[in-house]
């Protein structure tokens, strides 16, 4: 059995939205080099819609694929919808991740959330702090491993 699903390998080999955005409206950086994962998310937002999203990632294959998928999932979406992106949605869209790699999808969710928080702060937009609380996620329900 392959380590990763075909979708993960596709997003790893051909990552979408890799790079940076000049003059972004929101930037989020999450992770820790000591743990071996860092994701940086850039957002371009017009009229409350995410018109562009880019990422840079230092990490394993699933971290790169998770960043790629997460940016795909929010591009063209209103900010309110992007706020609802969950790590579960990222992992599912990738066709599942091995149990010990689920934290990569959590990191992607947190990266998007962190960039959105930065957007709200930059433009002095009101926001619900609770929505940005980096919650502990239940990492057990959507593993592709029994």
């Amino acid at each position: 059995m392959a380590l990763y699903s075909e979708t993960v390998m596709d997003h790893f080999r051909h990552p979408r939205n890799v790079g940076i955005i000049e003059n972004p409206d929101g930037v989020g950086e999450v992770g820790n080099p000591i743990c071996g994962d860092i994701m940086k998310i850039y957002l371009k937002i017009e009229n409350d819609v995410i018109v562009d999203a880019k990422f840079e990632t230092f990490g394993c294959g699933s971290a790169i694929a998770s960043s790629s998928m997460a940016t795909e999932l929010i591009k063209g979406r209103p900010v309110s919808e992007a706020m609802e992106l969950t790590n579960k949605a990222v992992a599912e869209a990738l066709g599942g991740l091995p149990a010990h790699k689920l934290h990569c999808s959590v990191l992607a969710e947190e990266g998007i959330r962190s960039a959105l928080l930065d957007y709200h702060k930059r433009y002095n937009l009101p926001y619900d702090e609770e929505k940005f609380a980096l919650l502990h996620h239940d990492e057990e329900d959507f593993s592709d491993e029994a």
């Binding site: 940076i20 080099p33 860092i38 840079e56 230092f58 790169i64």
Partner: peptide, 16 residues
């Protein structure tokens, strides 16, 4: 290896 390292650095925020 040279090419792979170069590529991964090009998408790495740490490298930037």
């Amino acid at each position: 290896v040279t090419e792979a390292v170069e590529y991964l650095r090009s998408i790495s925020p740490v490298w930037r």
